[in-house]
Nucleic acid binder design. Structure first.
Lengths: 343, 343
DNA sequence: CTGAAAGCGCTAACAA
DNA sequence: TTGTTAGCGCTTTCAG
């Protein structure tokens, strides 16, 4: 297994073996035209024999480019960060970028400069910001990254004030769509189990719920809203709290896990779904179509969001290298209603 | 946003500003003792004023260490790769390693050398292998990484033949535990919906089921086994196929998603859970405790597995740098039975 | 078409 | 305690 570290073969070794200079090897490796066929053959043979591979680190150093993107994301991601990552990783790879991940655990202190500096020190060329927190510390950190360090940033949340381009989910429309669907099915007493109070996504979905209720002339007062925490536990607690405040015939849950917990709580109280209470979630996580009953939900295409974000960031980086200033349009990904049996 | 790329301030700039040599700045930055207090002050002042940050890439190059780990994992991971990542990322960060991720999508061709070479080219010091595929191509690739490239590797699956240390889940014991639990509850006609045929995890769990049936003197013939694909769809299909072959009073599903799908299918056929058919899954994914009925399952602690794997890999790397050969004991993480209502 | 020299940003070894 | 000299592995001028 663990052999003593053998020195990797360098361009120098290849040059010596092929009897040419370093540059010639470099040219061959980089596919330059200006190399005579026989020379190229010899170099290629030496490369093959020695098993030479280019050291990207050295290359990055001299070119002043790391071809690396930093990703700042939440740690215990209840919302399926995984799927997003798959869009991000695939696109990054396609564009030739490596990814350096930095996770912020929910129970850690609010991230400060030191949090991102490890990424900057490793010379990331751009940053993907996935923290959906509306607290001022997050905003100001993001602003400082852009202003002081001058690194291109693309957000995967629709950030409030910081002028960073984003590829984000249209949470407001999602809330609107979910609630409208319930209204169209004849529901009137529609409650909302929201996400955590300082989550941007949660706030937007709540706003969508309010707007849909308002336009239908229905009461959307605060007694109809409780905060959850994206988890089934939060959903179950939320439903109980809501039922104590009064009767309801539908619940818009901020995400599928919340809906799952709330549905079980409703079931335990002898309520029939969707007859007595209808449920709509958000996410369309794997499994949502197999709950009892299968969950009606608002799908968000995380893979597409991730892909787009990486594309935007890459464009920003290229422009920067070309000395240009690029103004990118924001990208708000539309929600998709998936009607199943819970509503 | 996208300012023209400004040259980052280097150690040279700091040295000039502070009126000292490069070396002195380097010493201060690296916290060496042998610097006079007033000199240190001046350097620190210059660093603060210029906003100097050390370029880790340059440092890595000269030290011949990248402080980076490569992770080779499956793309569309139905099994919650996310949670594992959280153990890996946390431990890697704690030990000062960055992570370079390489995902293998299930529908891509079997990974070949080119697949890992992008990691090697970026000088990763070790590789975390998370591909649980028993096909020969995977094995031989893994073997080649170790033999030809000489990079330390730790696997997160219990790999068959390749002599790579692992920190893996004890899938066999999980299968044993799940099946024994069903037997202890008085079930006799216990079927198994397995994972994909060439998944190592799936094969081991199947083996556990067989062994438990055998030791109880129950029939464990192939008519009682179908292959799923870790998904709810596969679980539903699996249950239907099993029921066509004969009656059963319990199902050991290879993972929670499979169990979820199978439970819905059972429900649709008017079977009561657990009265008519009991179910046990594997994973204890978020939500499993909120299914209808809450799922009895075998928990696996992915975070611990990830942490341990990173620790092992780091130890291997340190040993290598110290010129030693380290024999590491493998780590088989025990399953934990979580009894809920489905069995 | 090929090579020599310089240097990316930093640290290691030695000298002063 | 501080500075000087090399040089990590590579690419970029600029000569030849």
């Amino acid at each position: 297994m663990s052999l003593p570290a053998r020195r990797r073969v360098s361009i120098k070794d290849v040059a010596a073996a092929a009897g040419v200079s370093l540059q010639t090897v470099s040219r061959v490796v980089n596919g330059a035209e200006a190399v005579a066929a026989p020379t190229r053959e010899r170099v290629l043979a030496a490369i093959a024999e020695l098993g030479y591979r280019r050291n990207e680190l050295a290359r990055n150093l001299i070119q002043g480019r790391s071809r690396t993107l930093g990703v700042i994301c939440a740690g215990h991601d209840h919302q399926g960060g995984r799927q997003l990552n798959s869009g991000i990783t695939a696109e990054a790879e396609a564009l030739g970028y490596a990814l350096l991940i930095r996770e912020h655990q929910a129970d850690d202190p609010v991230p400060d400069d030191a949090f991102v500096e490890s990424l900057l020190d490793r010379q990331v060329e751009g940053i993907l910001w996935m923290l959906a927190d509306t607290r001022a510390e997050h905003d100001s950190l993001l602003r400082r990254i852009v202003a002081e360090h001058g690194v291109p940033v693309v957000a995967l949340v629709r950030s409030r004030s910081v002028g960073v381009p984003f590829s984000a989910f249209d949470n407001f429309s999602a809330g609107l769509m979910a609630t409208r669907h319930l209204i169209a099915r004849g529901r009137r007493a529609i409650a909302h189990i929201a996400g955590p109070a300082h989550s941007w996504d949660a706030q937007e979905r709540l706003r969508g719920w309010r707007e849909a209720m308002r336009e239908a002339g229905l009461a959307a007062d605060d007694t109809r809203v409780v905060n959850g925490d994206w988890s089934p536990e939060g959903g179950a607690r939320g439903l109980s709290a809501l039922l104590e405040r009064g009767p309801l015939d539908a619940v818009f849950a901020s995400n599928d896990h919340t809906a799952l917990g709330a549905m079980l709580a409703a079931h335990r109280r002898g309520l029939s779904i969707p007859r007595d209470v209808a449920f709509v979630g958000v996410d369309d996580i794997q499994g949502a179509g197999w709950y009892l009953p299968p969950l009606t939900t608002i799908r968000r295409n995380r893979v597409a969001m991730g892909r787009e974000a990486v594309r935007m960031l890459a464009a920003l980086i290229e422009a920067r290298h070309a000395g240009q200033v690029l103004e990118l349009p924001d990208y708000l990904h539309p929600p998709e209603l998936i009607v199943r049996e819970s509503a």
